[in-house]
């Protein structure tokens, strides 16, 4: 009896999943840092730095998203194929 196992072969966007994972880790890390600075920081400096860090973190997150959106994955796969062809390793073209 042939089981319909082809549902396991899902064409998943692994880079997008990786980006989501990275984003979640990033937001978690930013939250932990801000929590430490505001909860345990004594004096003015930790509070000032927490504001700077918060603004900088948002800036870098936007920068990362813009850089991710601007990637053309088709051009990249073509370029990688060309590189492999140059070295007679057309593994990806098969």
């Amino acid at each position: 009896m042939n089981l319909p196992l082809n549902f396991l072969i899902v064409n998943m966007n692994y880079i997008a999943i990786l980006m989501w994972f990275f984003g979640a880790v990033y937001i978690g890390y930013v939250f932990i840092t801000l929590y430490h600075l505001t909860r345990f920081g004594v004096g003015q400096s930790p509070k000032v730095f927490s504001v700077v860090f918060f603004v900088g973190s948002i800036f870098f997150l936007i920068l990362l998203l813009v850089a991710y959106i601007s990637i053309d994955f088709n051009i990249i796969s073509d370029s990688i194929n060309e590189i492999f062809k140059k070295f007679n390793m057309d593994l990806l073209s098969k």
Binding site: S70, I75, I83
Partner: peptide
Amino acid sequence: RMGLTSIVLFVFTIYYVIWWL
């Protein structure tokens, strides 16, 4: 020339994010 500018910029951005953290 290789058409990899966008991916290189993306890798550098990841580098800067890690640097910032």
